[in-house]
Design a protein around this nucleic acid. Structure first.
Lengths: 224, 224, 224, 224
DNA sequence: GATGAATGAGGATTCATTCAT
DNA sequence: AATGAATGAATCCTCATTCAT
């Protein structure tokens, strides 16, 4: 499952421009997406404070003032990046909202999350940055996106009579999930430094997905 | 074992602090330590780029230029904060270097790490910030501090014939440990938003320590 | 008599306005006039430097680039506003040019000026702004419009054998007239703050007109 | 009567620097005053929006960032200029507060005001700029400084049984005073354009002072 | 006639750092 | 050891204006 708009580099956007040229909006939407792509990458690498609007603009192929034709300011751009990055998670949840909670459903959600983050690890980094600082944006993400997912995870645990985790430990177990999943994608430099592998290479991503599935199984069902 | 950098004009200050402690300084803490404390807190909350030297200085009770009597600059100060924060881990490892690797020893190390991070959660945040960006400082931390610990974890896994993890999954399992441990302390805002608890309260810290010990057990020994 | 500048592409627009008035424009006012109205108000409130072209455009119901279809630029727009505002004064003078100077004629001119400013107090503000800075535009206004009027005022004084004012004081007396007349309309906030009245309300305007007529009489004819 | 600090150009300040060098504050106060002097002049000439902080700084002999060591920002600087400029008026009023209202007292106040404005015509321009826009600062000036003076003027009129002005005209008469006095100093370019004289030359200032005294007499006591 | 996109110039302000005192 | 003053570099942003559509 995939989101529809501009991913990681300008080449794809060049194609999109070609498509777009046929529509009414000549270059606008595309430029906006290109800016969002660059901003997502830079914010994810350097954090909000460490990223200069001018750098985003330059890498998106325009000047800083031009960027203000598309976004109201650095804050607004940052928020737009977050919203765009987190939107797919909201969609997932809504999508699966009908299905009653179950281990299978939880597993499906986790799979989708992992798939999405695997394609866009910058989102994981953005989330960690936000969570570290605990800004206002983060609060929205946490309550809007994470809480529903967490609720699913918790009920999966509660329903499982075999779980190792006492009721009061269950939140910590869910938190552990989150840390492992987000951490894997967010902390690429760590893994690289420790194990001399690129955790975002296709090979490693594959391995990680399998690992996470087993990890989830263990966390839900483990017996001592 | 001592880390090599960020000690620019620190030695001489140490002496001067001694003088001052006897004469001027009201509380026992030297100015240098006060600066480090404030810097640790602010860097942990806002990241390197988001923290202004002037803010650190102000909260430490002096002006920015005065801070330069104690540290060679923002970079040096940041490094000193990291070194001071990470030093205890080096000491632990050195301390336990003699003991041959074993499950018991690994467990002991984990306990100590958790104990230390529980007292200084800012350290966890600093580490995550560094790891997110993957700067030069981080590389040193990863290689100097984490690799030895990781080596212990890996050998604990390897020695355990019952582990669920295949050889190629073992690094990911170790990484998962790290994410869970560091994540718990670093991402306090996340946990607070999700579960309405302060993860750094004594109660929660206690619970978390017990959880982590069980978690470690599961990660090492679990069977499907 | 027509002032020479600020009519860049205005003539052609006048034609186009005629067309539009019959076809598109909902209310009778042409876009050009609407822009001039808004610009007059904003320039009068905030001065030239303090007024953004974009603000004028927005309040006139279009975008800044569109405004450039009507005026050659901010300077040209400003000049057009001034010219339009001052033109009636030129017309008055021309109109009365035939009549020989006399106390009656002077009084008539003053009456008309007051009447006009009462309807368009922004003109008074614009004139004061210009006069404060003493820009090039102002010089034109002063020489083209004020000097002829002033000449009338001076000759009225000179002809009056009873005037209190010595020959060398007469310019100052004329200047005082100007300050009082222009000041009343330009400095509405002052009067409001001092006397808790809105100097541009119909009541006050009436009172002010009567006052100014008596003031003029006193200034011309007073004996100590 | 004169205010104590830095007037109109840097030469005087050079002297002050010499004096200041002996005191503890080496250059600070002087720099601050120099900035205020330049800012007063530029704000008076170009208005707030039309004045660049960098220009003020350059003319004061430093860079824009350095200016921020002395003032919190452009707004604060502007306010400081206003306060410094208006303070003498407050002092006057306080000084004369004891004396019961009388024609003599009013005349004395007017004399002092004229004297002060004659030395610092920029203050008059600043006041007119503020009054034109009607900003928050102006409101303070109007209520704090002008109202007390105005009260004096009004009571002078009321006490005079011979005054031409009806009760409801009296505020307008007082306003006329203000416009004439402030206008003369603020609108130098006007007078220059109309009468080819520099209204701030010593000669003209002298003439103006005499004129204003007679003007005040006429305004208070005139009979038709 | 209108507009979205783009931009060079400039503008206020912050920041890390230096230096004389 | 501390600080006020100063500053170059950089940051976010506004503005007047142009141009293709």
């Amino acid at each position: 499952m995939m989101v529809e708009a501009g991913y990681d580099n300008a080449n794809q956007n060049a194609n999109q421009n070609a498509n777009r040229a046929a529509t009414h909006e000549p270059d606008g939407e595309s430029t906006r997406e290109r800016i969002l792509d660059v901003a997502e990458r830079l914010f994810a690498q350097r954090g909000f404070a460490g990223t200069a609007v001018r750098d985003i603009a330059r890498e998106a192929g325009l000047t800083a003032p031009s960027l203000y034709n598309h976004f109201d300011g650095k804050d607004a751009l940052y928020e737009a990046v977050l919203v765009r990055g987190v939107q797919p998670f909201f969609d997932m949840i809504e999508d699966l909202g009908q299905t009653p909670p179950s281990a299978a459903r939880t597993e499906q959600i986790l799979d989708r999350i992992v798939d999405h983050l695997a394609t866009r690890p910058d989102i994981a980094r953005l989330i960690q940055f936000e969570s570290l600082a605990g800004g206002a944006n983060f609060s929205r993400i946490a309550h809007g996106w994470l809480r529903p997912i967490v609720a699913g995870g918790l009920s999966a645990l509660e329903e499982n009579p075999d779980t190792v985790w006492s009721r009061e430990e269950q939140p910590l177990a869910v938190a552990a999930w989150i840390h492992v999943i987000v951490g894997h994608f967010a902390q690429a430099p760590l893994l690289e430094a420790l194990f001399d592998v690129d955790p975002l290479s296709p090979d490693q991503l594959d391995r990680q997905k399998r690992f996470l599935r087993r990890f989830a199984g263990i966390m839900i069902a483990s017996r001592d």
